[in-house]
């Protein structure tokens, strides 16, 4: 699992690449820390290369959403596979996030 943070046109992008399982979650949590200091910028979670997510990863997504929303900004998800979208639907996460 590899996560890259970059800023594009005033938005913070997290490019998630690999399997976000419980073993990878602690490291990913460290790598996405800049998203928690987003200072009102919108955040984009780029899931084009995300192959898998478990509840440990969903926990991180929800943590980012709560933090960014509290600052009045948006979290967008882009490039999510059907299988992962299915997990989002099952857990009610589809209704929490905005999709691009």
């Amino acid at each position: 699992m590899n996560t890259t943070i970059k800023e594009v046109n005033g938005e913070l992008y997290a490019v998630l690449d690999g399997r976000l399982d419980t073993a990878a979650a602690a490291q990913t949590e460290k790598e996405i820390q800049p998203l928690f200091n987003s200072e009102g910028k919108n955040v984009v979670l780029d899931c084009n290369a995300l192959q898998y997510i478990s509840s440990s990863g969903l926990r991180l997504f929800l943590g980012v959403l709560k933090s960014v929303k509290a600052k009045g900004a948006h979290v967008y998800i882009t490039g999510m596979s059907d299988d992962i979208r299915n997990v989002f639907a099952m857990t009610g996460f589809t209704n929490l996030f905005e999709f691009r």
């Binding site: 509840s55 926990r59 929303k69």
Partner: peptide
Amino acid sequence: DTSLSAEERPIGGLGIYLVREL
């Protein structure tokens, strides 16, 4: 409760639920 808003949604508690759903 998977119908709660982001603000109301507790962090965690989904693991066992997923097992039963899947």
